[in-house]
Nucleic acid binder design. Structure first.
Lengths: 257, 257
DNA sequence: TATTGTAATTTCAAATATAGCAATAGATGC
DNA sequence: GCATCTATTGCTATATTTGAAATTACAATA
């Protein structure tokens, strides 16, 4: 016998998943239709979710998500889960590949290192947890930019000056936009000495179940060593990504109803 | 008869509320004890919440919140609820007091205007939605700083240069820290022409049910007009705050079990 | 302002899913 | 390797949820 799971709780979460930016408000009738519930049952679930503070009634029968979830979300982030789960994976990557690795967060302007691993031998750059990096000229940063919506990207590019650091630095808006388009297509970002002479990096996104970028993982090191091994690095990063996503969200496929 | 609410859903949310930064992991035994559930029932709820993706099993029997909540939280934020709910309240404040008003968000470095209202007559400053303001020399910014933890505050003060804008600008770290302590105690922040000559502002925090600052509301205008009416302004802001909190989280007191 | 259609809400009996006991399997520590 | 503790499963009584029908509230229209 499959383990007894509580159907009411499952339904409650199915309801929560119906909400989206395009669909901020839901009524009992919507529910009844889309989840195939009786109208009365649908109504009662909405009332229940309202009373526990998960939903707010905007007007009679019209419910939207409560800000409670922003709180719960912050609670999850505050627990430093990302950094804690990423750390062993970064250690593994660095051990295996012999290069530096790191994970980042993004606040809309700059990228912040939230975890890192470094090989035993000395490294050109000394990245530390908490360090902030420009978004427009780093692998992580460009990856985050590639995951912004068009309006946010426009605002970022308009609002942040770009100076030349090395011969490889890309300051031209059009070229940057082109590269971001490429990153969106190929699913990873490169830095070919654009910020520090001779420093190469490859970064991949870690996504939520709904496709949002949650963090990035990268390998970085002298371009001489990293230039050739792109496929191997990418493979290792993808595997670490999958493990991290599983650690954050649990096993991938919620199959049964 | 009280409306029929689904007990299982209520229990599920009680479980979710047990998690906190200090308590990131919970076991069935914890649950059974604290919510007075049968051990088997507690276990089944944890399994259910795991299967819907709300919890992740770290090891056998040890559960923590899934990053799913970070996603749901982002969904709430993306819906622009804060700005949408704040707008009519700001309009009301500005109509009533005849001064500018605004609401802000904070990314750890700068404060961003997310909604604003301006009186009919021309105003010294032209604040626009999306505008970024320094944190250390504005009412909103200091309010946000006052709500940071000690380590974040230290990092902010260490990482952000402070220049003199007017005679009233406070650049000294000790004086700034003292003022932040005052703000923490009194629950509101002032700007006495520290950023723009003659521009006065009073800002109050809007908090989540768990006490976290979610946004700030302020009244701003020429210091001549605003200097004397502090009590009235504070009262109006507090009332708007209460309304906004109710709109975000629903009615205040979840009394019954 | 009255009217009418639509959707939310309540009532109550039937059905079903859940709770808890008792037993087993699986870890963990000594 | 054994003992102990905790997680997990099977099974049934029962408390909870469900849904049809009836009622009430709302909103749009005349």
């Amino acid at each position: 016998m499959a383990p007894q799971i509580n159907g009411s709780v499952v339904k409650a979460f199915e309801i929560l998943h119906l909400f989206s930016p395009e669909r901020p408000v839901i009524t009992a009738a919507d529910l009844a239709r889309e989840l195939d519930l009786n109208g009365v049952t649908a109504h009662r679930f909405l009332r229940t979710l309202e009373q526990v503070g998960a939903l707010v009634a905007e007007s009679r029968g019209h419910y939207r998500l409560s800000f409670l979830f922003a709180d719960l979300g912050d609670r999850v982030r505050d627990a430093q889960m990302l950094a804690r789960l990423a750390q062993p994976l970064l250690n593994g990557l660095t051990d295996r590949l012999g290069e530096g690795s790191m994970a980042t967060s993004f606040n809309g302007a700059k990228v912040t290192c939230i975890a890192k691993a470094q090989p035993r031998r000395a490294l050109a750059v000394d990245v530390r947890v908490g360090v902030e990096l420009e978004a427009w000229c780093t692998a992580h940063g460009k990856l985050w930019l590639a995951h912004l919506g068009e309006t946010e990207l426009d605002r970022y590019l308009a609002g942040h000056a770009r100076q030349r650091f090395t011969a490889a630095t890309v300051t031209d808006e059009q070229r940057l936009r082109q590269e971001i388009a490429v990153i969106r297509k190929q699913g990873f970002a490169l830095n070919r000495g654009e910020r520090e002479e001779g420093l190469f990096a490859l970064a991949v996104p870690v996504r939520s179940r709904s496709g949002r970028m949650v963090t990035g993982l990268s390998i970085f090191g002298p371009s001489g060593r990293l230039g050739g091994a792109q496929a191997e690095i990418l493979g290792a990063l993808r595997q670490a990504t999958a493990e991290l996503e599983a650690g954050l969200y649990g096993p991938p496929a919620p199959i049964q109803v």
